[in-house]
Design a protein around this nucleic acid. Sequence first.
DNA 1: TTTGTATTCAATTGATCTATTGAATAAGCT
DNA 2: AGCTTATTCAATAGATCAATTGAATACAAA
Lengths: 219, 219
Amino acid sequence: MSSGNVKHDLFAQFARIGKALSNANRLEIIEFLAQGERSVDALAQIAGLSIANTSQHLQQLRQAGLVTLRKDGQRVYYRLSGDDVVQMLNSLRAVADRHLTEVAHLVTTYLDTKDHLEPVLAQDLLARARAGEVTVLDVRPPEEFAAGHLQGAINIPLNELEARLNELSPEHEVVAYCRGPYCVLSYDAVARLRERGLRARRLQDGYPEWKIAGLPVES
Amino acid sequence: MSSGNVKHDLFAQFARIGKALSNANRLEIIEFLAQGERSVDALAQIAGLSIANTSQHLQQLRQAGLVTLRKDGQRVYYRLSGDDVVQMLNSLRAVADRHLTEVAHLVTTYLDTKDHLEPVLAQDLLARARAGEVTVLDVRPPEEFAAGHLQGAINIPLNELEARLNELSPEHEVVAYCRGPYCVLSYDAVARLRERGLRARRLQDGYPEWKIAGLPVES
DNA sequence: TTTGTATTCAATTGATCTATTGAATAAGCT
DNA sequence: AGCTTATTCAATAGATCAATTGAATACAAA
């Protein structure tokens, strides 16, 4: 094999990763798995896809080396192959955010109307949480919270937020977070909290990024 | 538009980037453009593609926001939209390297046989070049060298290396680099230099990574 | 104005991808 | 053993992609 061909073969392998990332449903599945290991049916439910379709997408991700599996009885559990997969997804998202006007438009039109304030940086949140100045609110579903969350965070899934507002102290600002930098749940939570007169802001990224940064987590 | 839909729309936009990265020829074009701006016909030549095919791929990259263009007379010049595109490509390559056995196999079988030594880190090369201990050798084609190169590097394109060996001092170790971390040219150069009794190693990454790291460049 | 050159556009063909459907496989329970 | 459940496999139809071809467009030179 000549040098020219090995280069093209290498790039063909790199393109396999690009292919795995070329479908919206698969990107969402990656983000869900970044919260922790899940079974196929759990993923299918949260992604709103059929089990067969979810399984097909997982096979694609697996062939691209992005996920691994373990079996437990009837169930098969998938997880990401490493933190580098999350970092790659975030790199891709940052590029899209910077260079695709449609992304900026969606963010401006639908996300920024819910929270136009600057998000809180992870290091700032860490300091303020340690000083007891803020309430750290995880708005993901409880299974995701159980798989891992920011140290000291409390879990109120978004759909329970209205009913459980009394659990939040009006004395403390609330910093809400969820699955990643574009997670709509935390935007919605912030908007609702503010409607009820609470001071609320969003963490800049989500649980996966906090964990990868080596900041304190619990499970 | 409900929250569920804005999330899916956002992920559809992210998937557009994945699509742009799902073809080997387009990935190669990105790496070529990371060396500096090029015209369509120059890209077509170096990529070994027809002009029409190259143009089509460039339109795909442009629609994905990854490249921009300027016109100069009859010619159209393309460049990457930002350094973040290179960083994203490198993130993708690192994931492939870590998780796709085929990549490891290609590297082991065809690249490591040419250079099984550890590559030189950028910071180490910078220090040693400043101390005058090494010769920094750029083995890319001259147009790429002219667009930008490591400060103090000399340019001997790979296909001229045999004829210009006398330009390299046997007293100094040679550190060769080219377009990126998987650039076959520098592997070939190192192998040839060693065959002729010179001490030679490879830089870990390429010119684009050196530049992005803020290290000294010239053009 | 005519000719030449660089690039894009549009159409075509064959390849590949995605969601769906239902069968097949594997595991658990009675 | 029979029934249930979770997942994968295989086939299908429609959508999308990639390379090629030749026409169209834009620019330059004589």
